[in-house]
Design a protein around this nucleic acid. Sequence first.
RNA 1: GGCCCGGUAGCUCAGUUGAAUAGAGCAACUGCCUUCUAAGCAGUAGGUCAUUGGUUUGAAUCCAAUCCGGGUCACCA
Length: 633
Amino acid sequence: MGITSELKDWIGGSLKSLYGQEFEAGELTIGTTKPEFEGDYTLVLFSFVKVLKKSPEVIGNEIGEHLVARFPFITAFNVIKGFLNLTISDTYWINFLDRNFSNSNYGKMPGNNQMVVVEYSSPNTNKPLHLGHLRNNFLGWSVAELLKVSGHNVVKTSVLNDRGIHICKSMNSWLQFADGATPDSTGIKGDHFVGDYYVKAENTIKEQAALILQSMLAGNDTTLDNEADQQKAATLVSRYYELSTTGKNEAAEKILDQLKEIARNNTVFFRQTQQMLLDWEAGKPAVRALWEKMNGWVYEGFNETYKKIGSDFDQNYFESETYILGKEFVEEGLKSGVFFRKEDGSCWIDLTAEGLDEKIVLRKDGTSVYITQDLGLADIKFQQYKYDQSIYVIADEQNYHMKVLKLILQKLGKPYANGINHLSYGLVELPSGRMKTREGTVVDADELIEELKNVARQKTEELGKVKDFNPGELNELYDTIAIGALKFFILRVDAKKKMIFNPEESIDFHGFTGPFIQWTHARIRSILRKAEEANYSTDKKAGSLFPKEKELIVLLEQYGSVIRQAVADFNPSLLAIYIYDLSKKYNTFYAEHPVMTAESDEKKKLRLNLCLLTANVIASGMGLLGIRVPQRM
RNA sequence: GGCCCGGUAGCUCAGUUGAAUAGAGCAACUGCCUUCUAAGCAGUAGGUCAUUGGUUUGAAUCCAAUCCGGGUCACCA
């Protein structure tokens, strides 16, 4: 189970027999001993002082003596201030290493029959994936793997946002500007190809809107095609002039924004796009065919990128199929009084008692809104998988939405509501702030990976350690390093926090990075290959450990508890940090102790086992982050 | 404005449910490759943990207030 919980058991036993007091495991604070003190693990004594009415020194000595007398694996103790430092015997650690060095399942937990659905990625089909999507993909994939390794059954799902006004913009743009061009005819990757037409659409709307705005400000509103807009615009324009002539520029700006919005909605291009959406909903064959064709291009592009970054899904849901869902929920909610209908026919839920607002669940025209669709999808997922937990990997912009989703399902008395969890992650920002598609400040996923591959190639050629690799092997290595650098860079930071990506400084290959860990692994493999060539083997067992050897084993022993913590918190960064610490520790050990030329056979054997277990834990841990480790680099 | 999240070294980030002198990497400086891969190791320097007050044997961590930054409160998804 892990040395820490074992120690807690032992200490709990000592406390009971010494003082007749029961303590819960949570009441015992145990951590690794700071390097400047003697010992391996440390118990904090302050919390016992009040209950036991003795000084920490006395308590520490009494517990220490009791433990040393009862457990041969605890060989020594010392009490400094309020801390009891315990030394675990070398034999304990050597035995641990013996038991696990060749255990290929080290760190894995047995199955627990829990079903977990993880929804992640969920892109729009009108533009290629960018850095923000990557964080989502890496997190979702890694959390799913962490759940698997800790014994859960996992289904990875994705919702493709494949319909809506944004998709129609790309379609309309393609019709007007493409002249029949396709990804094949141009050689452009499908998702980028469609994304380019989306950008063209936005630019067209912007240009047309600018003209309309100009004309509105000149007092000419005939370009607006309905009276309501004309009146609204006229009022806003006069207010705008009023504010700007009296120097209230900030308020005037806000009015101008509203006018811009009206102008956008009145452009010919936008009107056409709206009509297209209506035609799509009516099932007009030509529009549907175009829609399918263009989405097909995007999927081809996505699949290529997914393959490159290692994302995979057991089940795809399509918004074009789910957007009508959830209406039966509304009926059900109205009947049970959880929802109510307003005069205009729209349906709502009142969440003010929970400190939230009223939330609409059905439009007055009877169509579903976002939250309604999600209610329906949650239900479909449950029917399909009978999940114990359903995890949504979604950016923290949607914290409120997810809170509402769970709350509504709870109010409707759905048994699966409590299993809904939001893995909320912060946005990836540039030093200049948020990435914006409209402003072209988005870091494209494919381009970024290509750049990193180039850096990997350059660096590898410089070092010249794999000159015998063939082109295929080299390409695979560059992929491994580039994706490793990128994934580690993103996964090493706490998902909840927003992170800043600086494209100038780009992603490093030294220090606290993926390539450093990959290189450490390659370095270990190199030793292990040498040992294999030498056909080395012995039955001799070492009897004692050097500090660097012991520290490494102590760290290796913690792998399982790190995984448990990472799963419990849905937080792969704990694992990333751990693997880095382990690599760092190994390199320190490496610099101090030779393996193949060790001072004795038993030391050589011990260190080879240490190398093997370290390599296995690095490979397995990196695997859980979705990062491959090379044999050589 | 209501609600939510954040503020730790020049920069990017750690800091489990409060515990010993707040840690890494990058950038700067010093050593170390005829010995298992130097994408490394060892070391130096760098901090008013946003501010103020409180709780506690003990606070970066908990509480309150203030300041700064972000998100959200759509018949968009």
